[in-house]
Structures are given as structure tokens and as C-alpha cells.
């Protein structure tokens, strides 16, 4: 036993003390990699401060910081409205997801349902269905939601949820991914807590709502953070179902803004892109741990 542990200890103690060339190379490679990741964003911010004349030739730094580019970009397109719309969609989808997916996740994790394994398998299979595959029929279903948008009870005659907040929020909320994520977090809670609450006479729903759910608060934040990001960055679905600027989200606004390459005013476009990107970068910097935890949970335990 001792003969086995000794070399390990010895090798462990020699490793960190010496500055080896391999270590320096590692840092150099990682720093170059990190720069490759960050430079495009830096280039975006630098361009946002430049004048129309400055961007005719390649240069790194702007001659002066034109903060006015940001306010002028806001006026060339209804960016403020796009912002509001994106925020509304993100909040709506997140609230809907938290409600639907935590309840379902809890039932899958803690309730003795017949065929519980099959139900879990069902959600895992759905998790693998790419959104692009259901694009066409989803559009038709949303178009024929009964009694909305001039539709009759059979879902015909009108536009249903097209061009509506319902259509933007409900179909894409509550993705199976989040039900699975919630289930993963509930599974790790000990059953004794629920038992103790049962002895105290609390009903099953009360146990879920007042005992178990508060315990997975970090998981709820993880789910919220992922859902906010997904909703904020969504593009294809809003592109399909909105027909007016009234409800268009930010990404759609950006894409419209950059549609005609010959007439793009790059400093304004980069200013708009920077403003659109900033909220998610801030969200990530503050909630880094949640992102990492969430990915790890799905990837590893999944």
C-alpha cells in the first residue's frame, strides 16, 4: 500500500512547483483561442464608434468615440420597440416554461405514476426533435387555433395565433428540454423531506409547491436563464409568424436592417448589434455558474 502511494505523492509534489515550457505553451494557446473568440465582439464595438468615412478603409481604432451613433441607430429603425418585444417574449416564455416544466418535472421525478419510465422516455425522445422538422405543420396548427384571430370553433376562417403574442410565446415555451432539466434537479432531492411533510398532514400539491420547489431555486434560475437566452435569440419562428413591426423581436429587426448589403450603414448596424448582444452577455457573466451547471446536468446525467 505504502509503496503504491509514495510515487504518486512524489510526482504530485514536483509537478506544480516547476514552471515547465509545456505550461507556458498551454497558456499561450489558450490566450490565442480566447482572443479569437473575443476579437469579433471588440471589432463590433470599435466599429460602432466610427464614422461613415472611417469605415471605408480598414482600421482598428475609431478617430473619436461617437456615442451619438447609438442614439442615431435607435432612430433609423424602431429598435426600442424591438427591444420591448423581445423582452415581452422572453418574460412570457420564461413564466410559461417555469410553470409547465417544474410541475411536469416534479411528477416525473417524485410521483409513482404507472409507466413513469415510458413517460420520461417520451420527453427525452421529444427533446431530440429539432424545431425545424415541425416548422410547416406547427405553422398550420398555430394558424388554426379555434376561436382566435377570427377563427371559428373548428379553427377555420381566420389567422388563429399568427401575428399574436400567443403565437410568439406559447408554442415555443415549455420545451421538453426544460421538463427534463427540472426532473433532473427534483430527482436529487431526498424523499424523506416529502415524507416528513406528509406526516405533518400537508397535501401532495402543498408538498410540491411549498416544500420541494423552493429547494430547487437554483435549478429554477438555471431554467429561467436558459429560456431567456433562447427566447431572446429566437429568429426563425418570429420571422414566420409576424407580419408587422408591431410585434417583431430584436433579432428580426437586426436581420431586416442588414438585408441590403449595398446600403448597410455599418456603424449603426454594429451599434444596434452591440445593444442587442449586451443583455445576454451581462446575463451570462452574472449567471455563469447556472449555465455551466445546467449544461453539465443535462450532458452528464442525461
Amino acid at each position: 500500500m505504502t509503496s503504491a502511494t509514495l510515487p504518486a505523492v512524489a510526482s504530485a509534489s514536483t509537478k506544480p512547483s516547476a514552471v515547465r515550457p509545456g505550461r507556458i505553451l498551454l497558456y499561450v494557446v489558450l490566450i490565442i483561442g480566447a482572443l479569437l473568440m473575443i476579437t469579433p465582439f471588440l471589432w463590433m464595438v470599435l466599429t460602432a464608434f466610427k464614422s461613415e468615412l472611417e469605415i471605408l478603409k480598414f482600421s482598428w481604432l475609431p478617430g473619436e468615440l461617437r456615442w451619438s451613433n447609438f442614439s442615431e441607430a435607435m432612430q433609423t429603425a424602431p429598435f426600442l420597440r424591438y427591444f420591448r418585444n423581445s423582452a415581452l417574449i422572453a418574460i412570457g416564455e420564461t413564466a410559461f416554461t417555469l410553470l409547465i416544466c417544474t410541475t411536469a418535472g416534479y411528477a416525473l421525478a417524485k410521483m409513482p405514476l404507472k409507466g413513469g419510465k415510458w413517460l420520461l422516455g417520451y420527453f427525452i425522445v421529444l427533446l431530440l426533435v429539432p424545431f425545424q422538422i415541425i416548422l410547416v405543420p406547427l405553422f398550420m396548427i398555430v394558424k388554426s387555433i379555434p376561436l382566435f384571430g377570427g377563427n371559428n370553433i373548428l379553427g377555420q376562417g381566420g389567422i388563429g395565433w399568427l401575428n399574436s403574442w400567443w403565437g410568439l410565446i406559447i408554442p415555443l415555451g415549455a420545451a421538453p428540454f426544460f421538463t427534463f432539466l427540472a426532473r433532473q434537479f427534483f430527482v436529487s432531492l431526498p424523499d424523506e423531506l416529502a415524507q416528513a411533510a406528509r406526516v405533518d398532514g400537508l397535501g401532495e400539491f402543498g408538498i410540491f409547491w411549498r416544500i420541494m420547489t423552493p429547494l430547487i431555486k437554483p435549478a429554477l434560475i438555471t431554467i429561467a436563464v436558459f429560456q431567456i437566452e433562447a427566447a431572446w435569440n429566437g429568429f426563425l419562428w418570429p420571422l414566420m409568424i409576424t407580419t408587422s413591426d408591431e410585434m417583431r423581436p430584436l433579432q428580426l429587426g437586426l436581420a431586416i436592417f442588414s438585408q441590403n448589403p449595398a446600403e448597410i450603414q455599418w456603424p449603426y448596424l454594429m451599434a444596434g448589434t452591440a445593444l442587442a448582444t449586451l443583455p445576454m452577455i451581462i446575463l451570462f457573466v452574472f449567471a455563469q455558474k447556472r449555465f455551466v451547471e445546467g449544461m453539465a446536468n443535462v450532458g452528464i446525467k442525461g
Binding site: L30, G33, M37, L254, S258, F284, V292
Partner: peptide, 25 residues
């Protein structure tokens, strides 16, 4: 923490925004 953030930022950025930036690059 720095490296993790650097490598992850492109992922949290909307693909439309990423595409716009690279269109300019």
C-alpha cells in the same frame, strides 16, 4: 473564469447578431 467566459460568449449571442458581425468581418 475569464477563459470560460471568452469561449462561451459566442454561444450566448444570438446567431443573427453573430452573423451580422461576421458579415462585416
Amino acid at each position: 473564469g475569464f477563459f470560460r467566459t471568452a469561449f462561451y460568449i459566442p454561444t450566448v449571442t444570438a446567431t443573427v447578431a453573430v452573423a451580422t458581425i461576421w458579415l462585416w468581418i
